[in-house]
Simulated scan of single mutants.
Amino acid sequence: MVGFVGAAAISLFVAFPLLMMLQLKNNELKKLQEAVNYSQRHDSVTKTLNGTAFAAAVEHYIDRRKRISTDAGGVMIAVVIDTLDAISRRYGPQWADTVMQSLAAITQSSVRSGDLVARLATNELGVFLPGATIENAQDVGMRIRRRCEQAAFTAGDAPLSLDIRLGGAVFDGPTDFNHIRQLADEMAMDRGGGEAEDVPISRLPAA
């Protein structure tokens, strides 16, 4: 009996460190997988969602609306910096990245809880406001514009002049992400310059 107890104690003494090492290894693998999943869904510069993850989230919302009639529509806002390419050529791509990081921070601080922000192109962010009205979207869009105007964008000591365009698309019927984004981009580029008194938002025709 004593020998059995002694053998069990020795086995436990040997196994415990191995179990601890295995647990630590599992934790490391879990953290690595979480990091991989995050990097696959987020833009490396702005830390917002990337275009693929953003489109999938919007499509999921649209698909859910088909099954849950109580869900409202939504609004997408395009936020475009016309002068980003010029900034990159004159001051270097690192300063263009800094501008986009600042724009992302301003945008994320301006949206509502539950809204999504993503980088859709080199010089463009997208904002999806599920269930929002045009008035909600106007509030968010003008908050972004106002905070951008108040912010001091610089490349080192050199002040930067930003030409920011905003435009939106509202939908409340069957549609898809590509149509929503196309209309939001058109509104931003055609009518969404800094001289606009509000954010131009157009209603997407039902598919």
Rank of each mutant, 00 (worst) to 15 (best):
43 D>L: 04
127 V>S: 01
159 P>T: 03
147 R>A: 11
116 L>Q: 10
58 V>F: 05
56 A>F: 03
76 M>P: 07
97 D>I: 01
44 S>I: 12
52 T>W: 13
64 R>W: 06
1 M>I: 12
112 R>W: 11
45 V>K: 04
205 P>K: 06
206 A>L: 09
85 D>R: 15
51 G>I: 01
108 Q>P: 04
174 P>M: 01
170 V>P: 02
159 P>C: 04
87 I>M: 01
27 N>L: 14
168 G>E: 09
92 G>T: 10
13 F>S: 15
172 D>E: 13
142 M>G: 02
43 D>W: 06
71 D>N: 08
107 T>E: 02
79 V>P: 01
184 A>V: 05
158 A>E: 15
197 E>Q: 14
204 L>A: 03
20 M>F: 10
186 E>C: 05
107 T>V: 08
146 R>C: 10
60 H>K: 12
98 T>D: 14
12 L>E: 13
113 S>L: 14
95 W>N: 11
90 R>G: 02
105 A>N: 06
191 R>G: 02
98 T>F: 11
90 R>T: 15
139 D>E: 15
205 P>C: 02
86 A>T: 08
118 A>G: 08
94 Q>T: 13
162 L>P: 06
184 A>H: 06
185 D>N: 14
155 A>D: 06
115 D>S: 07
46 T>W: 04
184 A>R: 03
174 P>L: 02
148 C>H: 03
143 R>N: 05
29 L>C: 04
86 A>H: 04
50 N>G: 03
130 P>A: 00
69 S>T: 11
8 A>W: 09
126 G>N: 01
190 D>P: 05
50 N>A: 02
199 V>Y: 10
126 G>D: 09
19 L>W: 07
45 V>E: 06
60 H>W: 00
78 A>V: 05
140 V>E: 09
207 A>C: 10
50 N>W: 00
107 T>F: 01
23 Q>P: 00
186 E>T: 13
38 Y>E: 09
157 D>Q: 13
36 V>G: 09
120 L>K: 01
108 Q>K: 03
74 G>L: 08
121 A>G: 01
11 S>P: 00
176 D>M: 08
49 L>P: 06
89 R>M: 10
45 V>C: 09
167 G>W: 02
31 K>L: 12
165 R>L: 04
66 K>C: 11
97 D>S: 04
145 R>Q: 08
89 R>T: 11
6 G>I: 12
111 V>Q: 02
8 A>D: 12
160 L>T: 03
199 V>K: 09
188 A>N: 08
14 V>K: 07
178 N>G: 11
156 G>A: 00
67 R>G: 10
121 A>Q: 04
141 G>L: 01
115 D>T: 04
150 Q>V: 05
199 V>E: 07
15 A>W: 05
173 G>V: 04
153 F>D: 05
145 R>E: 01
65 R>T: 09
116 L>Y: 11
11 S>D: 13
129 L>W: 00
118 A>N: 08
73 G>E: 05
116 L>D: 07
5 V>E: 15
78 A>H: 07
105 A>F: 05
23 Q>H: 11
114 G>F: 07
90 R>N: 12
2 V>Y: 15
3 G>Q: 13
53 A>Y: 08
100 M>Y: 01
164 I>G: 00
181 R>T: 09
70 T>A: 13
44 S>P: 09
94 Q>M: 12
